[in-house]
């Protein structure tokens, strides 16, 4: 694989992937890694600041910030990745159908996309949360509804680009079924670009989920989530500003890593296109 080789040479991409793998593992093994229970309160030990016992200090209810941060990976990062995955799957299925079959079905799917894309996604998400009420499942559903149209359209154009290629045309003339062509030729060649799209956007989904949780519309207390931790930090900002730092830095690093990785992936694929 040319792309893997190219990525391996790219130092930022390697560092970012490594960092993200560590973060994901930390999230999976949070129950073993976290020194304390993330929701257990200890009012006597509140807002201790950094010390040996509590590496990142405790919050206003005496909960260990480091443990909350580790468990927060599960909500913030994992939920964003799951959301992205479902969105991509829906976009791929609809985009592939529209791109491969064209005609009426393509027309219907595209007009639907037009309507959904004429809504700014922030407003769409607020509208759906407004209707279904706050909560993490509703946020996932809302962001999928808000984003699927964009991916369907992007993936459709990727599929169309490939169906025009001569080897696909040849497979068609040779009498292979559409399903066979989709499976054998289109899927492998479009997967790369689709994964770039997905990586580029995980960062923005993380920002959105934490923003909604910050407003109190997403993850509900006491589940640890980075955006909500910042909301709680806001209330004790005047007396204990340090508590704003760990969750903010966590979001910043993870989002930056996803953005960097997405950019590198994009470069890797662009170069490939240049060679053709």
């Amino acid at each position: 694989m040319v792309i893997v080789k190219r990525l391996r040479k790219d130092r930022t991409a390697m560092i970012c992937s490594l960092f993200l793998i560590v973060v994901i593992l930390a999230g999976i093994f949070a129950p073993w890694l976290a020194p304390y229970d993330p929701i257990e309160m200890d009012v006597k030990e509140k807002l201790t600041g950094m010390n040996k016992e509590y590496l990142l200090g405790t919050d206003q209810l005496g909960r260990d910030v480091l443990s909350r941060l580790l468990y927060g990976i599960r909500t913030t990062v994992f939920v964003a990745m799951v959301t992205m995955f479902i969105t991509i799957v829906i976009g791929t299925i609809l985009g592939a159908i529209a791109g491969m079959f064209r005609g009426k079905i393509d027309e219907i799917i595209m007009r639907l996309c037009d309507i959904f894309m004429s809504f700014p996604s922030e407003v769409m998400i607020l509208a759906i949360i407004g209707m279904m009420g706050p909560g993490i499942t509703n946020i996932i559903i809302a962001s999928i509804i808000a984003k699927w149209a964009w991916y369907t359209r992007m993936i459709r154009s990727v599929v169309i680009k490939y169906t025009g290629k001569s080897y696909i045309q040849f497979a068609r003339v040779a009498g292979f079924s559409k399903w066979h062509i989709a499976k054998r030729h289109i899927a492998p060649s479009t997967m790369g670009e689709i994964s770039v799209l997905a990586t580029l956007d995980v960062g923005s989904v993380i920002l959105m989920i934490s923003a909604l949780s910050f407003l109190g519309l997403g993850v509900q207390a006491p589940t640890p989530e980075w955006g909500m931790m910042l909301n709680e930090a806001k209330n004790v900002m005047t007396v204990h500003p340090f508590i704003m730092i760990p969750p903010g830095v966590a979001i910043l690093l993870v989002v930056a890593a996803f953005n960097f990785l997405g950019d590198s992936l994009q470069d890797a694929f662009n170069v490939k296109r240049g060679h053709e």
Partner: peptide, 10 residues
């Protein structure tokens, strides 16, 4: 681009 706007605000 990677900083959440609400954190910048805070």
């Amino acid at each position: 681009e990677a900083m959440p706007s609400f954190w910048i605000g805070l």
